[in-house]
């Protein structure tokens, strides 16, 4: 499970509005939970609920990955798309 802070949301206006309305805004923390068995869509946890997004939608959300406090590996803290930020 990777944690990240939402930096910004891009994409077509309708999609962008819906993502913002579903709470992907204000630097909220998003947890990537899992992929669907066939690889797509992805499941996320934010603001106390679970939501699934297709990869192409998740790509519109730019996040900074939060390195786990106990992590052995060093993770970059730069902003990147939410999909790319995983693993």
């Amino acid at each position: 499970m990777t944690l990240a802070v939402v930096e910004s949301v891009h994409g077509a206006s309708d999609l962008r509005r819906r993502l913002l309305e579903m709470g992907f805004c204000n630097r909220t923390i998003v947890t990537a939970i899992r992929r669907a068995p066939l690889g797509d869509p992805l499941e996320f946890f934010l603001r106390g609920y679970y939501v699934s997004l297709r990869k192409e939608e998740a790509r519109c959300i730019l996040v900074s990955v939060i390195p786990p406090p106990t992590s052995r590996e060093e993770k970059a803290n730069g902003a990147g798309p939410i999909v790319g930020g995983e693993e």
Partner: peptide
């Protein structure tokens, strides 16, 4: 028409 996407809550 472009899909509304798959922004689906898992309640």
């Amino acid at each position: 028409g472009k899909d509304s996407g798959f922004i689906l809550e898992l309640p």
